[in-house]
């Protein structure tokens, strides 16, 4: 199991799109370091041959028939939008 020291908070914060202050970085690094050290004991469990549990109950093929139903009116779809124009969500220009 990897060590808690591996936590590169800058890299992870970037992946999570979270701007952290230097204070937050220091505090989280220390706190999560403790949590991760605690978690290291999981490495001791013998999990060979054990299937992972992704769902509390194994059920398959849960689907719906392909019948279209009305969605949200555009006004409701955009009612919480921080910025909109021409019935679209406006964001600062995305440079591709």
């Amino acid at each position: 199991m990897s060590s808690a020291r591996d936590l590169d908070i800058d890299h992870v914060a970037k992946l999570a799109r979270l701007a952290l202050t230097p204070e937050e970085k220091a505090k989280f690094s220390q706190q999560l370091g403790e949590v991760l050290s605690h978690i290291e004991q999981l490495g001791k469990v013998d999990v060979s041959g054990i299937e992972p549990t992704a769902h509390a109950f194994p059920v398959v093929n849960v689907w719906a028939d392909d019948v279209a139903r009305p969605g949200l009116p555009v006004e409701a779809a955009l009612q919480n939008a921080p910025a909109q124009r021409h019935h679209m969500i406006a964001v600062p220009k995305v440079v591709e």
Binding site: M1, L42, G43, V45, V47, I50, E51, P52, T53, A54
Partner: peptide
Amino acid sequence: LRAQKVRTL
């Protein structure tokens, strides 16, 4: 993945 397996146990 390991946590999911321990979850099974």
